[in-house]
Amino acid sequence: MKILALLKRVPDTEAKILINQEGTGIKDEGIKYVINTYDEYAVEEGLRLKEKTGGTSTVTVVCAGPEEATELIRTALAMGADDAVHVCDKALERPDPFVIAAVLAKAIKAEGFDIIFCGKQAIDDDMGQIQSILAEMLDIPQVNVATAFELAADAKRATVRRRVEGGDEKVETSLPVIVSCEKGLNDPRYASLPGIMKAKKKEIRKKTLADLGFAQAPGDARSTILRWLPPQKSSGCTMVKAEETRDAVKELVRLLREEAKVV
């Protein structure tokens, strides 16, 4: 079984995100990059499926990203993935979901697959679109926000649980399929040291757009970011005070609804 796991390099969740002086993006300095959290679940689920199916099953990591993504791909290889495809091209510097999806689709088609795991969204642009666009481009079914995955005995179908508002849905799907992973699906493993050592020798197939058969970047950017803005709320705690506790609570409820918009 050929299993693919998609991987994106993103700033750590703890990184201080500051908008650059020109207002055209974020300051890169001081930012630590990590494997997108949800993609780790994808790699892990791929590995588990490989272990379960055994035999000739392989897990291939597919990544479109800058040169620096290599070390993160190595991390996934250290976890146990067999090899990787790394699409690395200057033309992908300011990516658009459609451009990335087109590039990935090409690479994936060349690679062949039975199942693709990916994160439900990347924690940088938080778009959550790639997997569905890819599914459309590859003409395969998609199951998003998976919290459980099980392959049928015949290895031609799978049962996936996905998170929706107010509960879970059980989805039966045929293979090939793309499954986007949610927290709770699994606990990604910590690479062992022999795993890290072995990963140094595993193959990462570097591809440029030309290698994939693109004469130029596939398609134009479909959107323009007009401006970058800092988060609305400054840090610091608003102490809600009133003579009567009830009034303080009333004010808190108002703030939660009108200012924070969380209830």
């Binding site: 995100i17 924690i123 007009l226 803005l229 988060p231």
Partner: peptide, 11 residues
């Protein structure tokens, strides 16, 4: 974007 650590306005 970035889990709410920044916002963009986009067209």
């Amino acid at each position: 974007v970035y889990s709410g650590r920044a916002y963009v306005e986009i067209v």
